[in-house]
């Protein structure tokens, strides 16, 4: 009986997002569009790397934006307050949020892969693509936490703007739009301190057939702890203000 609630909550969460093209068109189609403009045309190893970059860009973008913006907006809604008065509402809500983020991430990634197959000549096999998708979801964890933090520290009106202000420079600095070695001097040094760079490093190692760089994993764990603390702090502050 509870399982039916989980299924229904997830189903309706997906339904209501799909009924909102203003949400899913940009999140699902922007990564492949940017790929077409900046990442296509290569061949061989370089085509693989570029595809991986934009897959990661799409996946972590969905994680970051969906949680950030939806938390900021829900927080102030009457519906959210009402929902909390229902029996056992927290679990189904959280699971449906996670599930829909995974769904939309994979859709965005799938479009990039299809775009790459049409517009460039990647050499990776299907098995590597599947590993890439799984790895992208894993490296999306710190960005999900950053999104949650953003949701609690911004207002509904500012959330989208702030999210763009954080995410677009991070994607650029991290070398997801152009390879890190082509970034200008000063920027290239900054690159090593961004979570996007380390997410990229891990994805590139997967399509390059290399072993995953431990340093990058370590960095991402560090970012997860930091963003997680920021998210928890914001969550507690909001709980205290609204429901204490």
């Amino acid at each position: 009986m509870r399982i039916e609630l989980y299924v229904l909550a997830a189903q309706y969460q997906l339904k209501s997002l799909f009924r909102l093209p203003a949400y899913w068109v940009p999140t699902v189609l922007f990564p492949v569009m940017l790929f077409a403009m900046f990442g296509s045309g290569g061949s061989g190893r370089s085509a693989d790397y570029r595809m991986a970059s934009f897959v990661v860009y799409g996946v972590i973008g969905v994680a970051f934006f969906q949680f950030g913006v939806s938390i900021a907006q829900d927080r102030e809604s009457h519906w959210e307050r009402y929902r909390r008065s229902l029996p056992g509402a927290a679990g189904p809500h959280l699971v449906s949020q996670l599930l829909s983020a995974v769904m939309f991430s994979l859709l965005a990634a799938a479009f990039v892969v299809i775009g790459a197959l049409i517009l460039s000549a990647p050499t990776v096999g299907m098995d590597q693509v599947l590993i890439l998708l799984a790895v992208s979801l894993a490296v999306a964890v710190p960005f999900t936490l950053l999104g949650v933090a953003l949701g609690y520290w911004t207002t509904p009106k500012s959330a989208v703007a702030v999210a763009n202000l954080i995410y677009l420079p991070m994607a650029y600095l991290g070398g997801l739009w152009m390879p890190p070695n082509r970034l200008p001097g000063g920027v290239a040094e900054l690159s090593l301190f961004t979570p996007t760079r380390h997410a990229g490093e891990i994805a590139w190692s997967v399509v390059g057939g290399r072993s995953v760089p431990g340093v990058s994993v370590f960095w991402l764990i560090g970012f997860s702890v930091g963003f997680g603390m920021l998210a928890f702090w914001g969550y507690q502050r909001d709980e205290k203000r609204r429901y204490a």
Partner: peptide, 28 residues
Amino acid sequence: TGYAAQDSDFPPNLTVREILKLVRRHYR
């Protein structure tokens, strides 16, 4: 317990029937 607040809003992209169904499913 049931509750209706002074002000209310709902997920804008769900129908009345869907919202009723979702809320009903929470209860035993």
